[in-house]
């Protein structure tokens, strides 16, 4: 039987959740025995080459590129998992929610105390740059999400136990210390 295929992505996140996945230490050797990786920053595969069984997504949706990647994952993964606070509730990037996009950009590029010289008051608007969404969205407010792994980042043991349970079909009994929102 072929191994289950895993894909991962970081949207509006800090890569902390991916770092936490690496924190499973030497179990990573067991992991590559258990599963095969497809599109993921871990192996640097940029586009889906196969239909995947499990998609792990960190980060919420803050721009049109995130939106595109998220939909691509939903279309290519049987099971899609929100990994970490940003994916689940927007996380720290969502602190801008409730402030208009214009105000955010003006603060970043024109009015902010740390802004250097910008006499022409230019705000980035190249068409190559993804458009910022009106607010940062939790993933499940855009596509169907099958499971949630909270934490900032989710503890390595939680990621490990969840992936193993999914792959082996064993029941997942999460110890108290592993469900945290920070």
């Amino acid at each position: 039987m072929s191994k289950p295929i895993v894909a991962t992505a970081s949207l509006a996140g800090c890569f902390g959740c991916h770092m936490s996945l690496l924190d499973i230490d030497d179990r990573i050797l067991k992991l590559i025995e258990l599963v095969e990786f497809n599109k993921s920053p871990i192996d640097d595969i940029k586009t889906f080459t196969k239909h995947c069984d499990i998609g792990l997504i960190e980060g919420g949706v803050c721009n049109t590129e995130n939106l595109h990647v998220l939909k691509d994952f939903r279309n290519n993964c049987k099971i899609l998992i929100s990994v970490g606070e940003c994916a689940i509730m927007g996380g720290l990037p969502a602190m801008r929610n409730g402030i208009s996009v214009r105000e955010c950009l003006e603060e970043a590029y024109i009015n902010g105390v740390t802004v250097g010289e910008n006499k022409k008051k230019i705000m980035p608007n190249d068409e190559e740059i993804p458009i910022i969404t009106d607010k940062v969205y939790p993933l499940h407010e855009i596509v169907k999400i099958d499971y949630y792994l909270p934490g900032c980042p989710p503890r390595a043991d939680l990621l490990w136990q969840a992936v193993v349970a999914l792959v082996t079909g064993d029941e997942l009994n999460i110890p108290y210390e592993l469900i945290k929102f920070d």
């Binding site: 929100s82 606070e85 689940i88 720290l92 602190m95 909270p150 469900i179 929102f181 920070d182």
Partner: peptide, 30 residues
């Protein structure tokens, strides 16, 4: 409630109830 940036995190009763009831995601929109 941005727990990762909150000083009360770990000592917060609301958060602790979220842990107790294993709140993985709220059923209501933010």
């Amino acid at each position: 409630h941005f727990c990762p940036a909150c000083e009360k995190s770990g000592d917060c009763d609301l958060q602790a109830l979220g842990y107790l009831y294993q709140m993985m995601v709220p059923r209501f929109p933010y």
